[in-house]
Design a protein around this nucleic acid. Structure first.
Length: 251
RNA sequence: AGCUUGAACCGUA
């Protein structure tokens, strides 16, 4: 509803950096980067937030040149990106596969305090994995001194996504060995890995562990993975059984 | 006001 937003923005008695940023963000979300840029250029005071919104917006839409140009300008203006800015840009690069900008952000992180932040490293892992560079993703993962469940999930998903089901399952085993508690998202990657690797019995085994051993809530996604695993493996009857017995509405 | 991980299928030849 950017037309209504714009009308209100124009008539409001005073505007601050938050109201300007809200407009920039709205246009970016609506896919109108030209309007976003126009307001961005016009705003009298800028902090990290509008810079983040613009750069991420360009990156997410695959507008590499515009994203790079603005990022350079931000650095030249002496602004130091915080964790939020780095993560936001990395997530945008991951979404569009903009590896070149992702690498540039990685370079920046290497020489900043943010390199020790788990969330920043997680965003790096996800970016590299989604851009198809599993080696770099593993590099970042292995270099972390501390990891959370998202670190493991991102790495697992990256491996599974690129067909390395066996490696993903090895990583899952290591995750458990190291005492990390898996969550619902973890098992989506685990079941997906079994599916890719054709490991039907293993898949059944992992599925049964979700509730029993980890006390997690089985979700429609887990059932979906099982249907996929069984169906792909030729066990169509059983796949259909899963659809029939799942305790929620099949989607 | 910006903030990391979530399955499959189909569609682009």
């Amino acid at each position: 509803e950017m037309n209504s937003a714009f009308e209100l923005f124009q008539v409001m008695p005073e505007r601050n950096v938050v109201s300007w940023s809200t407009m920039v963000s709205g246009y970016s979300k609506a896919g109108d980067m030209d309007m976003a840029k126009m307001l961005f250029d016009k705003m009298p005071v800028k902090n990290l937030v509008p810079w983040t919104i613009m750069i991420s917006g360009y990156a997410e839409k695959g507008l590499a040149k515009e994203a790079f140009t603005l990022y350079d300008r931000m650095e030249k203006a002496g602004l130091e990106p915080d964790d939020g800015t780095l993560i936001s840009i990395l997530a945008a690069c991951a979404e569009s596969g903009l590896l070149s900008l992702g690498k540039r952000i990685h370079f920046k992180i290497e020489s900043s305090k943010s390199r020790y932040r788990i969330q920043v490293c997680n965003a790096l892992i996800d970016m590299y994995a989604k851009c198809g560079n599993l080696h770099k993703a593993l590099n970042v993962f292995d270099g972390m001194v501390e990891r959370d469940v998202v670190s493991w999930n991102s790495m697992l998903q990256g491996l599974a996504m690129h067909g390395n089901g066996k490696e993903a399952l090895d990583l899952f085993a290591r995750m458990i060995r190291e005492g990390m508690e898996p969550d619902e998202v973890t098992f989506i990657s685990v079941l997906c890995s079994c599916s890719h690797a054709g490991l039907i019995e293993e898949g059944r085994h992992y599925f049964s562990m979700i509730e029993k051993d980890y006390g997690l809530v089985l979700q429609v996604e887990h059932y979906g993975c099982m249907v996929d695993l069984l169906g792909r493996g030729g066990h169509l009857k059983e796949a259909f059984e899963f659809v029939k017995v799942m305790p929620m509405e099949p989607n």
